[in-house]
């Protein structure tokens, strides 16, 4: 750890991509809307303008509904769902792809949404826990989770269910041991694992159309 700090003049002198964007963004803004820039000529204008120009258009389908959005490239699919689209059923447990709480389906395939940038999902079909039930009729695995008490606090549950549905569809739910293996990317601190296995096994055996 350095014992001294850069002065505020020196701070931010490094030529980062973001600094370049601030510059070029400001230049474009001047040519387009000079009055806006003049008004924004306060201390933070450069960052504000850079922020505006750093947003990218994104079209994607979530639970059958089309969304047209402007998002920052650094926004994850998880944060897009939770903070911009308002679907908080997908949980944030680590932001590092280590816990599985944020599991969603992209075109039917399970992924950790915290490891996927939102802009990487252009044109994709996303399914979250909110999109699993058909109206009031729960998905068979949701029913089985309730029946087998396959959760306690409920925080990992949406990820477990999304993962469980995919686990069955992938053909990885042939036995209790296989389920244990293919569900081990979804952590549960309350310790509902045996009941999660029961719920998935029963749903698989039920032969329900998932």
């Amino acid at each position: 750890m350095s014992k001294t700090l850069p002065t505020s003049d020196e701070q931010g002198k490094g030529a980062s991509r973001r600094d370049f964007l601030k510059w070029s963004g400001a230049a474009v803004a001047v040519s387009l809307t000079p009055s806006v820039v003049t008004r924004a000529a306060g201390e933070r204008a450069d960052e504000t303008i850079a922020g505006f120009f750093e947003k990218m258009p994104l079209k994607l389908e979530v639970n059958g509904k089309l969304h047209q959005l402007q998002v920052e490239p650094r926004t994850t699919l998880l944060d897009l769902l939770r903070e911009q689209i308002g679907l908080t059923g997908t949980k944030k447990g680590c932001d590092q792809g280590q816990c599985g709480a944020c599991t969603v389906h992209v075109n039917g395939r399970r992924i950790n949404s915290c490891l996927s940038l939102a802009v990487m999902n252009e044109g994709q079909k996303i399914t979250t826990i909110e999109g699993l039930a058909k109206g009031d009729e729960l998905h068979p695995l949701q029913e089985a989770f309730i029946k087998h008490d396959a959760f306690q606090c409920g925080y990992c549950t949406p990820g477990q269910i999304m993962s469980g549905v995919a686990c069955i569809n992938e053909g990885h739910a042939g036995s209790a041991d296989e389920i244990r293996e293919f569900m081990s990317g979804n952590l549960c601190r309350c310790g509902a694992y045996p009941h999660i296995v029961d719920a998935i096994l029963e749903t698989k055996k039920g032969g329900n159309n998932l």
Binding site: R82, G86, L87, T88, G89, T90, K91, K92, T128, I129, E130, L132, A133, L138, Q142, F145, I146, K147, D149, F151, G154, Y155, T157, P158, I161
Partner: peptide, 20 residues
């Protein structure tokens, strides 16, 4: 059955960082 089970399996249960 858990009385809040349906909220928990459908993503409707709101935790502390989820209030709009």
């Amino acid at each position: 059955d858990r009385v809040d089970g349906k909220q928990k399996v459908t993503g409707q249960a709101l935790y502390a960082g989820e209030y709009p």
